[in-house]
Write a protein that binds this DNA or RNA. Sequence first.
DNA 1: ACCTGAACACCGTTCAAGT
DNA 2: ACCTGAACACCGTTCAAGT
Lengths: 203, 203
Amino acid sequence: VSRARSARGRGDELREELLDAAEELLAEHDDERQVTIRAIVERVGVTPPSLYRHFRDKRDVIEQVVARRFLALGAATMAAAEGPAARGEAAEALRAGCLAYLEWARENPGGYAVLFRVRRDTELGLPEGSSGSVAFDGLREGIEACQEAGQARSADPHLLAAVVWTSLHGLATLTVLRAEFPWPDLEVMVDTLLHGVVGTPLP
Amino acid sequence: VSRARSARGRGDELREELLDAAEELLAEHDDERQVTIRAIVERVGVTPPSLYRHFRDKRDVIEQVVARRFLALGAATMAAAEGPAARGEAAEALRAGCLAYLEWARENPGGYAVLFRVRRDTELGLPEGSSGSVAFDGLREGIEACQEAGQARSADPHLLAAVVWTSLHGLATLTVLRAEFPWPDLEVMVDTLLHGVVGTPLP
DNA sequence: ACCTGAACACCGTTCAAGT
DNA sequence: ACCTGAACACCGTTCAAGT
């Protein structure tokens, strides 16, 4: 594949095209290792060294894609919780957000795993608000809304949100990774979790 | 490095040495990619093709190491729960087992992550009882013991065990991967989880 | 300024050959 | 039977050179 030469000042276009290609490859292959620099640039129609004008190294490329996907994950859960929250149904909003989180992880198995596979010492490079904290804040606010509505126990919302978040993460990863395990129904597990930990009424 | 030639019928010795080397490298480097075939064989003092007499490919090597480590993880949790269980303290045994699971994951960050990074379609190759089910069965039995002792709510123990297992997994991975997050105390999180989901009394 | 051609040092894996 | 030497097709990354 070949490609028309870019004019001066149009370097950002290639950068976006490379990110798009990396995101596509990640979605297709479900496995970080299959997403090679050479596959990315070939898809765009450019040679490997061109990529290094826009990204420091391969890790940098993956990190940028991860940042994008975190925003999408946060948006998906927010969108699901929005309706019930507007109607004042705090517990239902929390439940809908949690289920949307799990559904997103299920539909993006490779992508979801990659979000958390980034090494500790490199995460600082992520732009503010994309390291999962937006989604976490939304979760904590959802729990606080339940408390104010008298639909949750009165414990430290940060503690409850942390327990629910880690549990959701475990559900998201294990149910995909150990697909052959005799899992109980996902909704039942979420309800067990929210009812037990947060204290929301069972639906 | 070089190495004395093995006599006939001593092929199994090399196999074990290779597994030991792979396990060491995994513990040292904390990252699956650093554990290369060439690094493994060099540590043992042998050339790359020798490895293929004992393992199908790299994935096979990693899988065998994973099977070993699963047994170690199961043993660690069982050992921690043993004492309280023998004294009839069912809830304390469950709590001790959960904390031991998390401690093991903390001490083996790279190793623990690798346990679950193995792809779905290849897990069938794991020997029976090493795919995590031993630890899971132990967890379910611990919950059943609590129920019999009147220290847990009477719900389906398989459901409760599944929720607790996924939550522990989430705690184990996220607290290590997102070390900079302001996590609540780990014991408090475990107690919140067990008290809420299983219904054990707070210590 | 933006991109390419060619190379470097690696990797997993395989094949023929040595003892 | 067990292991080696040498090679293959890849990979990430870099450097000098082209337009």
